[in-house]
Design a protein around this nucleic acid. Sequence first.
DNA 1: GCAAGGTC
Length: 871
Amino acid sequence: MKTVLMVAEKPSLAQSIAKILSRGSMSSHKGLNGTCSVHEYTGTFAGQPVHFKMTSVCGHVMTLDFLGKYNKWDKVDPAELFSQAPTEKKEANPKLNMVKFLQVEGRGCDYIVLWLDCDKEGENICFEVLDAVLPVMNQAHGGEKTVFRARFSSITDTDICNAMARLGEPDHNEALSVDARQELDLRIGCAFTRFQTKYFQGKYGNLDSSLISFGPCQTPTLGFCVERHDKIQSFKPETYWVLQAKVNTDKDRSLLLDWDRVRVFDREIAQMFLNMTKLEKEAQVEATSRKEKAKQRPLALNTVEMLRVASSSLGWLSLLSLTGMGPQHAMQTAERLYTQGYISYPRTETTHYPENFDLKGPLRQQANHPAWADTVKRLLAEGINRPRKGHDAGDHPPITPMRSATEAELGSEAWRLYEYITRHFIATVSYDCKYLQSSISFRIGPEHFTCTGKTVISPGFTEIMPWQSVPLEENLPTCQKGDTFPVSEVKMLEKQTSPPDYLTEAELITLMEKHGIGTDASIPVHINNICQRNYVVVESGRRLKPTNLGIVLVHGYYKIDAELVLPTIRSAVEKQLNLIAQGKADYRQVLGHTLDIFKRKFHYFVDSIAGMDELMEVSFSPLAATGKPLSRCGKCHRFMKYIQAKPSRLHCSHCDETYTLPQNGTIKLYKELRCPLDDFELVLWSSGSRGKSYPLCPYCSNHPPFRDMKKGMGCNECTHPTCQHSLSMLGIGQCVECENGVLVLDPTSGPKWKVACNKCNVVAHCFENAHRVRVSADTCSACEAALLDVDFNKAKSPLPGDETQHTGCVFCDPIFQELVELKHAASCHPMHRGGPGRRQGRGRARGRRPAGKPSARRPKDKMSALAAYFV
DNA sequence: GCAAGGTC
């Protein structure tokens, strides 16, 4: 029997589609990556009985990157990234082993049906799958077609079965347009990012972002925030005047009337109108109207709308917590609700339920929920309303609650999101809110005034979304044309126009969606990016206020080449890409042409960077004026300044050289000791009192002196044969946990002595209160670790007898066993790693031994002694 | 160290 391999874009879809096509009778097992499943069943295909294997990828299989050597920032001119630098496709997520997985499943299959999402990205993934699988599939006989594409517009039985019945072919042009998009984004984004970052980092010491990035989505996103900032800055308040009239409708009731002219900006004219009306005793009714109006129930919920609501304080649900939920966080929360089965797939553009979608099922789930049982029961009893006709993007149904849940079950955060999703869903099958809008037009002297009021006829969906209720307004008196009411007061109010506020995240999402910046899945990422890079900060009410850095960047682009920041930059490129997708333009030509344009833009930008720099100067301090003098330069022997702001570094203003330091720790001078190789003063890097620390030569760390050393290494990884700070002199033995690490004595750690791995975060606390610990030249006869020579004060010595000195192996010596305790450096939480001691059985050469020499393995009984010792 | 797009 022949085999048909079928591949969907994500595991959840593979399951739903297989369920539909197999009519529920399939057998499933997990694939070798533990993430994707394979669902198998038998059926017929092209008129013959076959075996079906339905599985999935996890989004893109491959990602585009430059060849390795072009990723060295110091060695490559960013301009080369536009054409010379070759790119290659790498596995998008090496942990998933997707290519291998596809090949294991695809080997020996005769046909392949591609069920990837029906958009351009999906079409591109089709070819990624084919690249992996075709070489291992059975060869076709006599030109028989073996590759098929299923096109579906929703995940419903009819749609999926129809797609299976009318298989087509994958569209190569659409896939190519995505290839072009990837290459453009990569080349343009990286070139600008590298240039800007290097240029400004080399000049300023307090940029508060370690990366000055540029991208066709993130930069316009920032642009929106700065545009609003500029509006606020340039806003000039204007004074205006308003007439307000009050009439008595009853003995003790009065009615406020709005002026039909709304406002005037000239005081004297307002005064004139006031004079013309204030002497009038009566207001005459000129017309009355009563209109029944409806407030529409919401469209079914899609991702972008969910993110908007989540950010703008989740409606009234947030009254308790006052803060909204950022898009990134909201997506994570939604994904968790989805994987736990509380809601349907949360990434969808669709706001329309398929015709045969079972709306009552999910609604029945909510019929006993304490918060909305009454509403739901009534809807079920009296009949639900058809949801409004929304947009069908052909991806997934709108976000729908699938299972009832309580706050106690979900925790307050997830509950807020779940509660919103559920209330929204119930609202979509509820009725519109109906209300009566009545208005009365008055004339007082020559001026006209109006008064309106609303009364609710039936609340409809606002019952489940009370924050959407029509606000109760004053009940208007019943009257008719010609009636008069006594005027009790006419007054003139002076007011001022007020500036807009900073952009809310919800407004930003709307703007991005409108201009096609990002997709439902990537919008949260872009917003997160501009926050993390310190271009904007999230203020109360989730308003995005640009930082100085963000403002300077955008203003700089405006000065040099506004197109770099305008939202049209994306859509213009996308227009070109669409030509590829439609087969109207050649992929190579469009790519080459567009790259050429951006290459010119890039060179112009580089030539004009002084324009942006002028703005930078105002907000930031030059490197030479930043930081505190810390250690001496080995070349000029003057003090270099320590710049703490990320990326932390040392700067010698005399030599105009910058030396980067390890991040995320503190740096101090190390006893004015010097590196024997270059005469630079050593500094001591420390990750905190409970973590580890090691000396480091600023020069060696940036220019590794030996071939086996890499950039960023400290003395604890230095293979200098005789320097007293080197790995060679302070290394003890192979790390108990990681593959390549060596435990190195921290010579600065006394009296709470530490031995720390120079690769991972293993730290052994030992010999507390010893006044001296040295690494001996001798090695342990059993395990080859270096012996330690430990001196204690007489009063504090834990050694047996009256001994104050002992030399022994930290792994094997029975006396030392009592004095050593293994820990992980404080900076890393144990939850994030495999757990302590999990690889302690692994024996390998100890690090002190110069590379290349053969090493003895520890005897097995020694290994088990070691295991017991460290746990 | 960089983009944006999938999804986990």
